[in-house]
Design a protein around this nucleic acid. Sequence first.
DNA 1: GCCACCGGTGGC
DNA 2: GCCACCGGTGGC
Length: 362
Amino acid sequence: MLVKSLSEDKSPKPYPAEIRDLDISRIQMQSRPIKLTFKLKVKKDENGCNGSTLPDHPDKSCQQPIDEVSPQEEENHIAAVDEVNQSGEEDAQKQLVVYDPAANGTTTGEEVQPLSFPKKSIPFHSSKVLPSVGAFTVQCAECFKWRLIPTKEKYEEIREHLLEQPFVCETAREWRPEISCEDQPDICQDGSRLWAIDKPNIAQPPPGWQRLLRIRGEGSTRFADVYYVAPSGKRLRSMVEIQKYLLEHPEYVEAGVSISQFSFQIPRPLQENYVRKRPAPARITPSDANPLSWAGPDENTDLRLGLPGFCDAPDSEIVDLPAKKKVRRGPSKHVFSCDSVYDQQGVELEEPYQARNDVFEI
DNA sequence: GCCACCGGTGGC
DNA sequence: GCCACCGGTGGC
């Protein structure tokens, strides 16, 4: 999924009736089994991933050759994306890429395009502006191209059965009748957005309930939080709270709501070090033991000590974080190259779908 | 006072 | 390192 830096869209927006009333039975799902594997392989850029859908961020990395991916290693993915800082002015403002089903003519089968918000309207580093999901995308299990999913509901529906029913381009014909693997990808992993890998097979929330994903700011101790909002508006943030709430409101259980319909699994950011690492346990040395010489842990010490991919990176940068910290980051291109897209199959959720494994390990 | 967000910790 | 949980708190 694509995560966008937005604070304004907290309330769900109604989708056009044509989207809401999609006939799910018409979805063509592929039954080819998918193995869960996290090896990183790359595929030759035969898919036309040229960044054409992202005019502000031409994706040169898409032209790089990639190794073949065997079908047995394919896997559908689910992910989210936020804007990644670029150099210069864009460091200070996160450009939004959003997907607006109505504006993109989803119901008419026209080509979908990510939209860019006016940069000036997105003061990413102002307080309270956190990354949020900008688009849902799923990677085709056959051609590896990313396809935008028109609604969160549709995305949740695909995600729920992703392992048994891998997503393929033909699946998108439900809302784009002409789409096929021959068409250009809807979106590329080009470093202009933050991508997060969602987990497959998460149950759709019960009718009337909402599952919210809140992306935390960079440098936080965790990437995101999941909340469920009950029909009453009550916000629940753990399985314990869900269980308690259902006990206190047996009418939901009587209506068929079960604890198995809830999951607090969060996606993972593809960007390395988006989440602040937990400090290693302090080791007591003779000098450390001297209270006069011990200065206390600096939460960013590890980032300043030249860890691989950080301080020594030619284009690493200091980024202002929404909250307070400054974190030195490595080159985003490495993190978000198109190569990684083709390493995996994915579903873009509220968050872009990516290979769940770490593209960076190889 | 409420609550969205963040930090921290225990367990695995 | 990840996950689950929940306390703290700043901003409203």
